[in-house]
Amino acid sequence: MPDWLRRLLAHPSGSVGCLLLAVALVLAVAGPSLAPFDPETFHPRRRFEGPGLEFWLGTDQFGRDLLSRLLHGARSTILFGVIATAIGTSLGAAVGLASGYAGGLIDEAVMRIMDALLAIPSLLFSLLIVTVLGGSTVNAVAAVAVTIAPGMARIARSVTLSVKSRDFVAAAVARGESHAFTMFREVLPNVAAAVVVEASIRVAFATMVGATLSYLGLGAQPPASDWGLLIAEARPHMLRNAWLVIGPGLGIATITIGFNLFGDALRDALNPRVGR
């Protein structure tokens, strides 16, 4: 077991985070096949039931089984944050790496543009983009990825600047390596750790923004059962069956707590000097 993984699991919050992420992984992979009912089958005589023996978490306004709907919506809810963060991080890291490596005026111009993008509060920025592109899961992923990228670019750039001045980079340049080689084989591996840690902390936030967008009707569309969408659909009926809000709400909280704990513990494990 690598050293950082042992340190990660030794931390109580790290092990809880890993456990929650394992649960999330199982739900994302096997969720739909674990569902006891079809998520879209109506049980008209059993509407608005509370948790019970047959419908474990109760039923919604059409008598659909809430647990089955949650399990079917798990995959897209969980993957949303991961995919959006992955895309945004790669985009931002590429820009930051290239900008930092190029330096000079190019660097200055690119960073000013990143500053301008960072000056728009991220949820507002995502909303603007989805409004332009139209509400759908793919567009929502793109919108969140775009808001993640500028922050990542900044981090990748600042690490690139410090790595660039190290001797092994000068050595690569001196032995006549190409820019592409120096950038990707010498600089990038030393920038990657910082970027990955930062990304793991952003996943929770991206998941929350994704759920918010689908709550506002700008992400996944009915009859999908993304957890944000489930809460939006439950709103008119929330006084008749509060479980319709509590169930998906707890689901979202569990997933984001998992990502938050994992991200914090990973940062501590990889960099023992920062945080506690």
């Binding site: 929350m208 923004v209 809460i231 809000v245 709400g249 979202i252 938050n260």
Partner: peptide
């Protein structure tokens, strides 16, 4: 505080509506 940072505002707001605006 872990719970707090992990709940999006729309969830807390809706839960507040569910429990306090009856």
């Amino acid at each position: 505080s872990y719970l707090g940072i992990s709940l999006p505002e729309f969830v807390t707001a809706t839960l507040l509506l569910v429990f306090l605006v009856r």
